[in-house]
C-alpha cells in the first residue's frame, strides 16, 4: 500500500480524547515517536503541535532541558527518570516533578504523569502523558 498505515484505533481515540481536554496531554506511539499533543500542552511548551510534527519523543523532551526537583534543588533529569521513558520502556505508569524551560524561554514547574496504552489484544500501542502545572 502506498498510503501510510492507519494509526492504531486506540491512538486515534486517544488523540480525539486529548483534543477535547483542557489538561495538557501528549501521545507517543509504541516506538517512542511523539504523534500528537493538544492545545493546552502547546500553551505549556510554547509551540503548537502542527509546527513540530511527528518527532522522537526523547529529542523533543530534551529540548526543554528538564530538571528534577529533588529537595527543591534543580538537577538535569536523566532520561531514565522521565515518566514518558519509563512508560515506554517498562510499560508502567510513572509520575515526576520537573522544572522545564519552554520554547518561549519561560521556566515552568510541571508534574508529568505518563501511562502505557494497551489495545484489546494486550498489544502495546504507545503512551499518554499529562502535564500538571504546579
Amino acid at each position: 500500500m502506498d498510503t501510510p498505515r492507519q494509526k492504531h484505533l486506540v491512538l486515534i481515540l486517544a488523540r480525539e480524547f486529548a483534543s477535547n481536554l483542557s489538561t495538557p496531554t501528549l501521545i507517543a506511539d509504541e516506538g517512542g515517536r511523539l504523534v500528537f499533543y493538544n492545545e493546552a500542552a502547546a500553551a505549556v511548551t510554547g509551540t503548537p503541535f502542527a509546527e513540530i510534527g511527528e518527532v522522537p519523543l526523547d529529542e523533543w523532551t530534551a529540548s526543554f532541558v528538564p530538571r528534577t526537583l529533588d529537595d527543591d534543588v534543580a538537577d538535569p533529569a536523566p532520561a531514565e527518570r522521565r515518566p514518558t521513558r519509563i512508560a515506554l520502556d517498562e510499560r508502567r505508569p510513572s509520575h515526576e516533578r520537573f522544572l522545564i524551560t519552554s520554547r518561549d524561554g519561560v521556566e515552568r514547574e510541571v508534574e508529568i504523569s505518563a501511562f502505557p496504552l494497551f489495545a484489546h489484544a494486550d498489544e502495546f500501542i504507545g503512551i499518554v502523558a499529562i502535564f500538571w502545572r504546579t
Binding site: R5, Q6, I12, L13, R15
Partner: peptide, 22 residues
C-alpha cells in the same frame, strides 16, 4: 466521524484510512 470531521483528517489518522485507500 465520531472522532471529528472526516475532511480534516489525514488518511493515517482516519479510522480505516489504509484499509479503504484507493
Amino acid at each position: 466521524a465520531l472522532v471529528g470531521p472526516i475532511a480534516e483528517r489525514t488518511r493515517d489518522w482516519l479510522s480505516g484510512g489504509s484499509i479503504a485507500a484507493d
